[in-house]
Each structure stands twice: as C-alpha cells, then as structure tokens.
C-alpha cells in the first residue's frame, strides 16, 4: 500500500533519526512511503490565526493528492494540524501508531524480545489531546512493550507536558517540567515527538531517550541494541 508521507520540518533536521526510523520500519513491513512533493511547514503552534494555520496545512493536503489521500505524519504536531485542516474528511491522516496496530505488530516475525527491559512510553501532549485529533489506541505502546516481554513503568506521566515548545522562551520552566517526567520514568523512555526527545535528552542524567521506531526496529532485529 502506498502512503503519502509528510515528514515535517524537524524530521529533515534535528529529528532525522525519526525520519530514518519511520522509513525503515515501513519498508521492512512492506508499506511504501512516498514523500509529498514540495510540502510546506504546517505552522506548528506559532500562529494565532486559526484559519491561517488551516490554510497552510490545506496546501499540503492538496499537494498530497498527487500521491495518495492516505497521509502518514509522524510528528504529533504536524499530524494534528493536518487532521484539523481536512474539514470534509476526504483524507485519512494517520500517525504511524494508527497504522502499526498491535495485531499487525504481533503478526510480524520478531527477532528479539524486550525481556528484562523496563520501559516508559512517554506520549506527551498532542498524540492524546485534543480528543478529535488523538490517536485511536491510547495504550498501544504499553501493549507492544508488554506483548514482547518488557515491563512498563511511569504510566502516570505518560501524558504530562515537557514544555518543549517553550524551550527557547524559558528554559527554567522546561527544566522543571522535564524533571517531573524524568523522575517517574524508567531508564528507557520511548518518545514520539522531536521536541520531547530534545528536552528529555537535554535534561536526562543517564536515562536513555528513544524514538518508538528504535524500539520497533530493535524487535525486528534491525537495530543491535536499545
């Protein structure tokens, strides 16, 4: 199946690792991603005029038409903005977690399990809120970790905010918020958002911050260690 792929700005730079991971996971699982030609920024949360934000994302939907109406957007913020710009419901805008269901992941030939690993899935804000644009299964990562023999810890902070988008406005606040998350997390933290990755990694003292794609690639045997 061919999907139109919207990487978004971060995945071209600081979150290159997530981009590479997504392409690899989808490739191994036999799903084809084709990047939307000449896509533009979704506007993130930097614009106050809601109609301006929607029109930025609508341009991307229009550009995606050349590829597919099924769009994969790994960045939680991009995927929210794209979903909200699709007023008529003509497109199906998906976060990778909406495609990689538990049944699907359980059906693939796993080369490694997660026995002995205690992992904290840290969803952050925009995959779970607002409800209109949230992912379908809000416990998917816990289920994946448990199904492959790992243990889950720190569920109480899974939807806390790391303050990421204020990192360059007030780093003290972001430090305090990320410490709340890090304190309750296990040595392995699985994240989904480029900003969560950056903030938690900056303030982590020895805890490992991974993208969810790293975890899946490890299970698939494409990555040597977590």
């Amino acid at each position: 199946m061919v999907y139109a792929y919207y990487p978004g700005c971060s995945l071209k730079g600081s979150a290159k690792k997530l981009d590479v991971g997504i392409r690899k996971v989808f490739g191994v699982l036999g799903m084809h991603l084709e990047e939307i030609p000449d896509w533009n920024c979704c506007g993130a949360v930097e614009y106050g005029d809601a109609s301006e934000i929607r029109s930025m994302s609508r341009k991307n939907l229009f550009k995606a038409l050349k590829v597919s109406t099924r769009i994969i957007a790994p960045c939680p913020l991009c995927s929210k903005n794209l979903k909200e710009s699709d007023g008529s419901g003509e497109f199906s805008i998906l976060h990778p977690l909406d495609v990689l269901s538990l049944d699907f992941l359980m059906s693939i030939p796993a080369k490694k399990d997660l026995k002995g690993y205690v992992i904290t899935p840290y969803y952050g804000c925009l995959l779970l809120r607002p409800k209109e644009t949230a992912i379908k299964d809000k416990e998917i990562m816990e289920k994946v970790i448990l199904s492959f023999g790992g243990q889950v810890a720190g569920e109480e902070i899974k939807d806390k905010c790391c303050g990421g988008n204020k990192f360059f406005v007030d780093k003290e606040i972001v430090y305090k918020l990320s410490k709340i998350v890090l304190k309750k997390s296990s040595p392995f933290i699985v994240v989904f958002c480029p900003l969560c990755h950056m903030v938690l990694k900056t303030f982590s003292e020895g805890q490992k911050v991974l993208y969810f794609t790293d975890l899946i690639l490890y299970i698939l045997g494409e990555k040597k260690e977590l």
Binding site: V45, C125, L126, R129, P130, K131, D159, C161, G163, G164, N165, K166, V169, D170, I173, L177
Partner: peptide, 18 residues
C-alpha cells in the same frame, strides 16, 4: 508568554474550550 499548548485544559473543560 508561557502556555505550552498541552491541551490539558481543553481535555478537562466541560465545554472542551480550546
């Protein structure tokens, strides 16, 4: 200046005000 756009308020609001 400081709202982090986490949408926890929207999620809890009886009227889901964003």
């Amino acid at each position: 200046r400081l709202c982090t756009s986490c949408y926890r308020c929207t999620d809890s609001c009886p009227w889901s005000i964003r």
